[in-house]
Amino acid sequence: MNELLIYLIFLTGLFAVVFIKNIIKKIFGLGIMNSAVVLLFIVRGAEIGESAPILENTVYNVVDPIPQALMLTAIVISVCITALALGLAYNLYLTYRTFDIDELRDKIES
């Protein structure tokens, strides 16, 4: 059930990136997709245990720590990509006053 929900979130993002013309919304779509992937790793990785992976006296049966560590990296990379993309979109907007990607291409190539 969880996976189905995550899959729907992922599709929302993918749809935005592919079909919506506004660049900013595309970039948000990218963020949504990334969150879906992160959720997928964390939720599935938490299936095998009950407690957080911090080893103290009474803690046993922890969740898988690997997906969590990997996703920290993936989150940061996604933030970087988003920042750079927003910077590019901002520059394009200042020059052409539009966020529509097809319109931008027309204006630049003409």
């Binding site: 993918l14 990136v17 660049i23 595309k26 970039i27 990218l30 997709m33 990334n34 992937v37 996604s78 990509i81 750079l84 993309a85 590019l88 979109a89 520059n91 394009l92 020059t95 052409y96 931008l104 291409r105 630049i108 190539e109």
Partner: peptide, 20 residues
């Protein structure tokens, strides 16, 4: 150049999606 910005943005969006 604006053209380079757009090229970079297209490349970024498609390859970021592919990396996901």
């Amino acid at each position: 150049k604006p053209h380079a910005w757009l090229a970079s943005l297209s490349y970024l969006l498609i390859s970021a999606t592919a990396m996901l």
